[in-house]
Design a protein around this nucleic acid. Structure first.
Length: 253
DNA sequence: AAGCGTCACAACCGCCCGTCT
DNA sequence: CAGACGGGCGGTTGTGACGCT
C-alpha cells in the first residue's frame, strides 16, 4: 500500500515559521478547529503542508504549551517513564502536562541521555537497563515494533505501553485542540512536592492511571467515539498483568 | 576579535496505524 | 477485502546561540 507524500512539495514553504504564519494558523484553528490537517493550510491560506501545520500547532502554538526549562521533577519523570516506556515520547508527554513529545525528545537527547550514560557505565554490564546509543536507522521501517530501540522493555511492558500510549497521546493532542484545562488534572503528578520522589506507589498509580482516569481525562477523545476499543484492550491487558504479577515489577529507582 | 566546537531546539522526513470508501 | 487517506509517531537534521580557546 504505497503512500503518497504528505503533500505535493511544489510551491509549499518549508523551514522556520514566520510570526505572520503563526498568527494565521492560530486564528484559523481557534475559529474553525483542525478537523482536517490536510485541508487546513489551503483553507487558512498558508503555503504549508498540513503536517507542518499540525506540528507547528502541537509543538509550539498550542495555548497550553508550557514553555521554558524543564524542572528537576519533570526531568526525573522523563527518566523514569523512559525506563518504563522506552522511546515512546508521546506516551511520556502525556504524563507531562504542557510538554510535547518533541520537546521531551529533545531534552532526552540533549540532557538526560548524557546524564544517564555515566550512571549506566557505573552499573556496568550487569544493568539490563543500559540504554543503547543511537538507534540503528529503521531496519524495515519499524516504528511500531513495540521493542523500543533505545530502551530495554520487556515484551509485557511493551504491550502495556502500546496499550496506554494511544489514549494518553491523543489526550494531549485533543486537549490542545480544545484548549482544555483538563491537563491540569494531571498536575498533581509533578506539583506540590518539594522533594519529588518516585516510589512504588507512584508507579502503581502511573500504571493504573490510564484506566482509572480514562473517564475523566480522556473525555475529549471519547467525544469522538474512538477509544472504547482501546479501553477494552487496556482492561484486558491490565488484568493480564495483574494476574501475572508483572505490574508489581516496577523499575528500581 | 576571530575561529571553532558544542548545545539546544524547531522542523522535516519517512513510516505505520486506524478509518473510510 | 483492498486500497486510499489522514493522523500520528519516532528519528534525524539544520541552524542559530553560546562558550571556550
Amino acid at each position: 500500500m504505497g503512500r503518497a507524500p504528505c503533500c505535493e512539495k511544489m510551491g509549499l514553504k518549508k523551514g522556520p515559521w514566520t510570526p505572520e504564519e503563526d498568527k494565521v494558523l492560530v486564528a484559523h484553528i481557534e475559529r474553525f478547529g483542525h478537523s482536517n490537517w490536510r485541508a487546513l493550510p489551503k483553507l487558512a491560506g498558508l503555503l504549508r503542508c498540513g503536517k507542518s501545520c499540525r506540528l507547528r500547532w502541537i509543538n509550539y502554538l498550542r495555548p497550553d504549551i508550557k514553555r521554558g526549562n524543564f524542572t528537576k521533577e519533570e526531568e526525573d519523570t522523563i527518566i523514569q517513564l523512559h525506563e518504563l516506556l522506552g522511546n515512546r515520547w508521546s506516551a511520556i508527554a502525556a504524563r507531562l502536562p504542557g510538554r510535547t513529545d518533541n520537546e521531551i525528545k529533545n531534552v532526552w537527547h540533549t540532557h538526560l541521555k548524557k546524564r544517564l550514560e555515566p550512571k549506566a557505565q557505573e552499573h556496568g554490564a550487569a544493568s539490563a537497563k543500559k540504554h543503547k546509543p543511537a538507534a540503528p536507522k529503521r531496519e524495515s521501517g519499524g516504528r511500531r515494533t513495540d521493542v523500543p530501540t533505545t530502551a530495554p522493555v520487556s515484551p509485557e511492558r511493551s504491550v502495556l505501553s502500546s496499550v496506554t500510549e494511544s489514549s494518553m497521546a491523543s489526550s494531549v493532542a485533543e486537549h490542545g485542540n480544545t484548549g482544555s484545562s483538563a491537563f491540569a488534572k494531571e498536575e498533581s503528578f509533578t506539583s506540590g512536592s518539594e522533594d519529588f520522589q518516585i516510589d512504588e506507589s507512584f508507579w502503581s498509580e502511573t500504571l493504573s492511571m490510564p484506566l482509572d482516569s480514562h473517564d475523566v481525562s480522556m473525555e475529549p477523545r471519547d467525544a469522538f467515539g474512538a477509544s472504547s476499543g482501546a479501553a477494552d484492550d487496556m482492561d484486558f491487558w491490565l488484568r493480564v498483568f495483574i494476574e501475572a504479577g508483572d505490574v508489581q515489577q516496577l523499575p528500581q529507582i
